[in-house]
């Protein structure tokens, strides 16, 4: 049983070790038009046997992320995976969020960095329940990092989890953590064109935050151009333009966070009713 709330499903999922590799599947036919980095596809000796593989190289992460997602759903915890380039203002925004919401919302923060615990220290100073994950040589968080914190740190009674990913516009987008919402942060000082240069992260975001709006007067930056770049890769996600420093535009973000929580619990009670 789950040591936090006694539910059956959760521990079963969490304690189930993912052993070895999944079943061999048949891989679908490749398109021939693609570039191939090889001189000779069939240069192997005739005695060679061919073994079809087909599974994803990050299969373990895919499976673990699904298990995490089920655990979060069981415990009605919405999870934000916050991703951006280094220094876009993720921690600063979270500091302000904690100051505004900590009294009304019991939320946990996991913050990933390759080294050091500066971010967690900053967030602790404003009263956050936060834990630092050091990924060391790895440039992104993976689903195992999160799984390790579920029972102990996050706990079944958390009302929301925010994961601050390692500052990086490429790798975090390729590693599902089991989150319910992906939030991409883009600061005005990075320029308007990052969404089209790093399309995957911005394409998959459920919400895009444009941060440091207070700096616009000092920059050659326009909201219209920035929005065009965002819309080239993500036509529908809401965009919040804000400054955590001046507080401009913060209400929309704070309301978004609170709504995630109320949606998660009303979905949960709906499931109870249907049972």
């Amino acid at each position: 049983m789950c040591q936090d709330c006694g539910c059956e499903i959760a521990t079963d999922l969490i304690s189930r070790k993912i052993l070895g590799v999944p079943q061999v599947q048949q891989v679908q036919k490749l398109q021939i038009s693609q570039e191939v980095f090889s001189e000779d596809r069939n240069r192997s000796t005739p005695v060679s046997r061919r073994i079809e593989m087909g599974q994803a190289i990050v299969e373990k992460n895919i499976q673990q992320a699904e298990l995490n997602r089920m655990w979060f759903r069981t415990h009605q915890i919405p999870v934000i995976n916050m991703m951006s380039a280094p220094g876009s203002g993720k921690t600063y925004l979270l500091e302000k969020t904690v100051q505004a919401l900590a009294d009304s919302l019991d939320f946990a923060i996991l913050t990933g960095d390759q080294e050091m615990s500066y971010d967690a220290d900053r967030l602790k100073r404003v009263g956050a329940r936060v834990k630092q994950i050091n990924t060391l040589s790895s440039c992104h968080l993976n689903a195992q990092h999160i799984e390790a914190e579920l029972q102990g740190f996050v706990g079944a009674r958390s009302q929301l989890l925010v994961i601050e990913n390692v500052g990086n516009l490429v790798c975090p987008a390729a590693f599902d953590l089991g989150e319910s919402h992906k939030v991409a942060v883009l600061s005005t000082t990075e320029g308007e064109d990052k969404p089209t240069k790093y399309p995957l992260l911005f394409h998959e975001a459920d919400l895009i935050i444009v941060s440091k709006m207070d700096l616009v007067p000092y920059l050659d930056w326009t909201q219209e151009v920035c929005q065009q770049h965002i819309r080239k890769v993500n036509p529908n996600a809401p965009i919040f333009y804000l400054s955590a420093k001046t507080g401009e535009g913060m209400e929309a973000w704070l309301k978004y966070v609170q709504t995630l929580r109320s949606e998660a619990t009303s979905m949960g009670s709906l499931r109870e009713v249907l049972k």
Partner: peptide, 16 residues
């Protein structure tokens, strides 16, 4: 929606 381009797979092995 993206249908191709996110793959990362081992297709096959030629072994002795």
């Amino acid at each position: 929606k993206i249908i191709e381009g996110k793959e990362l797979r081992i297709v096959d092995l030629d072994v002795d």
